[in-house]
């Protein structure tokens, strides 16, 4: 039954994608189709990566309210990117081949993310709220540092950072899409392979360990996957804090299970659905551009508060 619900989501995404591509299609059809195709692909990639990353991260943190964005994972990515421009110079950065750049940034995020959040998680495993708050404040600090570096830069370098960080769904480099797609695919397969062990890990650290799970190592693996997925999403469109929360919560609600083998793909599909539907609604039906991110933040934030209050009153 659970599998059937995931299939429903697949069906919905396909139908919505078709609508997105073909709605009021006019000549020159080939051109418009390829334009829309690129946009659709990036929406799906970002939504899926964010959804899956959030479910993984929630299991690592043992908390259903968190997203990588809330604890500053994407702030770390912004920080790395800015630091890279600052150290290479605007021209040096711009002349790097985009594939190499992307892979390097992803690698750097995996490394620093593991160091920072892995250390935090393992050290503060018993004091969850403090760990979350540390992450939140760390995020604020990293954003501040990135901004400070951007202010210190020459205007030409600043322009490079701006372009790197605030790409929109329309203006995504096709090369990047291919790498992002490959990374997303690989990370998804890896996450699904970990799924049964993640089910055990969700019981909590001590319980999972007394069942013989190599908990800490599994958490590091999951965290590395989170880093890859966050890098994919952030590199394509910039940070979106609450999309993952929406996707993960809705996916759990729809599948009604704790099993990662079902929740992970459902969250990925849900993230993609939210973005495609949102973009379609805003752009085609209301003809408003780029309001999507603000709306996702708004509703995601509301959902967060609702979850906090509901959890507390149980």
């Amino acid at each position: 039954m659970v599998e059937r619900r995931v299939l429903w989501l697949v069906g919905a995404l396909i139908a919505l994608s078709a609508l997105f591509l073909l709605w009021q299609l006019r000549a020159p059809m080939g051109f418009i189709l390829s334009l829309r195709g690129t946009k659709l692909a990036s929406l799906i990639l970002v939504g899926a990566a964010t959804g899956i990353a959030t479910v993984l991260f929630q299991t690592v943190a043992g908390n259903r309210l968190l997203t990588p964005g809330i604890v500053g994972f994407d702030a770390l990515f912004v920080f790395i990117q800015t630091a890279l421009v600052l150290s290479l110079g605007g021209i040096g950065y711009a002349t790097l081949p985009s594939v190499a750049k992307f892979l390097f940034e992803t690698g750097a995020l995996v490394g620093t993310g593991l160091l920072l959040f892995g250390g935090l998680l393992l050290r503060d495993a018993r004091d969850l709220t403090r760990m979350i708050l540390t992450g939140v404040i760390l995020g604020v600090m990293l954003r501040g540092l990135a901004e400070m570096m951007q202010r210190v830069m020459a205007p030409s370098e600043f322009a490079v950072v701006q372009q790197a960080l605030f790409a929109t769904f329309g203006a995504v480099d096709t090369n990047q899409l291919w790498i992002a797609g490959a990374l997303l695919g690989a990370a998804t397969v890896a996450a699904l392979r970990l799924a049964p062990a993640l089910d055990v890990a969700a019981l909590g650290r001590d319980r999972a360990r007394s069942l013989g799970l190599g908990y800490d190592f599994l958490m590091l693996q999951a965290l590395a996957l989170v880093a890859v997925l966050v890098a994919v999403a952030t590199a394509l469109v910039g940070p979106m804090t609450f999309l993952g929360l929406l996707a993960a919560s809705l996916a759990r609600e729809i599948t009604g299970t704790h099993r990662h083998a079902a929740v992970l793909p459902a969250a990925g599909l849900m993230g993609a659905l939210i973005l495609v539907a949102g973009q379609f609604g805003f752009e085609r039906l209301l003809s408003r551009q780029s309001a999507l991110a603000v709306m996702v933040e708004f509703f995601g934030g509301l959902l967060f508060l609702l979850l906090v209050l509901r959890r507390r009153s149980v």
Partner: peptide, 29 residues
């Protein structure tokens, strides 16, 4: 096997699911 003192409860886990986790060390998923 070790039974902890207080248990955080995972939402949406049925009793059978929970008991079945006791077999995880034997089958590993």
């Amino acid at each position: 096997a070790f039974l902890q003192q207080s248990q955080p409860v995972v939402p949406r886990l049925t009793v059978r699911d929970m008991v079945a986790f006791g077999r995880w060390p034997h089958h590993g998923g």
